[in-house]
Design a protein around this nucleic acid. Sequence first.
DNA 1: ATTCTTTTCTAATAGGATTAGCTTTTTGGC
DNA 2: GCCAAAAAGCTAATCCTATTAGAAAAGAAT
Lengths: 204, 204
Amino acid sequence: MARVGLTPAAVTEQAARVCDEEGFDRLSLAAVAKRCGVAVPSLYKHVGGLEALRREVGTAAAAEIARVLGDAAIGRSGADALRAVARAYRDYARTRPGRYAALQQAPRPEDDAGAAAVFYRSVEVLASILAGFGLPDEARIDVIRWLRGTLHGFVDLELRGGFGLPQSVDGSFEVVVEALVQTLRNWPRAEDPEQEPDGSAGLG
Amino acid sequence: MARVGLTPAAVTEQAARVCDEEGFDRLSLAAVAKRCGVAVPSLYKHVGGLEALRREVGTAAAAEIARVLGDAAIGRSGADALRAVARAYRDYARTRPGRYAALQQAPRPEDDAGAAAVFYRSVEVLASILAGFGLPDEARIDVIRWLRGTLHGFVDLELRGGFGLPQSVDGSFEVVVEALVQTLRNWPRAEDPEQEPDGSAGLG
DNA sequence: ATTCTTTTCTAATAGGATTAGCTTTTTGGC
DNA sequence: GCCAAAAAGCTAATCCTATTAGAAAAGAAT
């Protein structure tokens, strides 16, 4: 019964590795216990159970990707910042696919408020970049949702093997990022409302 | 031992309902067997196991959404078709969330070629719509990846509860769709390559 | 040194997936 | 109509994982 000196953080880290190496859906207490060199029930002294462990991994990953995105944005602004952050986002998902999957579990209302704050940090990075594009205030949230969706969707499809054709996925991503940049540059401003010639819902 | 008259299709349908009502990750043979009014091992006469059943649901969903998207596109073209298909896509995911999750499992190489073809049908719908926008040939695949990613990303984040703020998600989606339309209209054509004034990778 | 707390363990329970093998129903050929 | 073969269902058994309960050992604190 030699003590291993486990901590909640250590357990979460091993769990995160299981996620990255085997897939988020293959995360099990059994696999984590084996890595920690401990019997399965011992984990319960450090985490609340499998469900709780999944959330721990997600929260840790949210903190991690926020730092990665923030670092990518340092010293850049506008389109440059957007390009750097978009690439950092995709790189994170590709190098840490299990953690990336884990952070798609949105914090539940009953989770502590700190968890929600951690998840929000990445959004703040995007928001600060968008500030440089001079968008109308009402468009803020819509634009962030659009940006998050575009990045997540591309990366998620890529990770799941959804892009089957042989054409370079790196190239496609560059195209997507440039499309984002152009769309932001052309975003309808208050001064040119006639960008909507067809009476549809409009962008703002 | 009265026979229930189960078929592979019936089992898959019940499984799909479990996915929609309880979540794709909660799909279990136990839940499906209960719905079918049958003991768990009986299911093995109709499906290969849990893993195979997941894939059956995914393939059935792929066929279903392809039909839904195709129907939405009938009688429309260009931006109108894109709007209709985008809304149909989101509606499908919202009304059939478990099936939508199931169809994110890309067919594996060892699956039969028919399965891959089914998954490809939705892509063909998108491709046929894009044909109306007169895009350069080299951009085809990149644009389809961008479009799929944008739709999937938005819808996936929405389904997972990733849009926490009170602002209308319907409204944001309309904005996203209009952004797609505008981006396609402004897509760099061979005749105006100077749309890239900053020496970056470019859109094509 | 002794006591208290914490970590780890073993044992036991419960639930799901899977396989083996038996029974009943249905079907097809005669 | 009858009989064999196939198909569909069942029970029993095995294995794996999660979880809880409670004992034992290690470490910390007095």
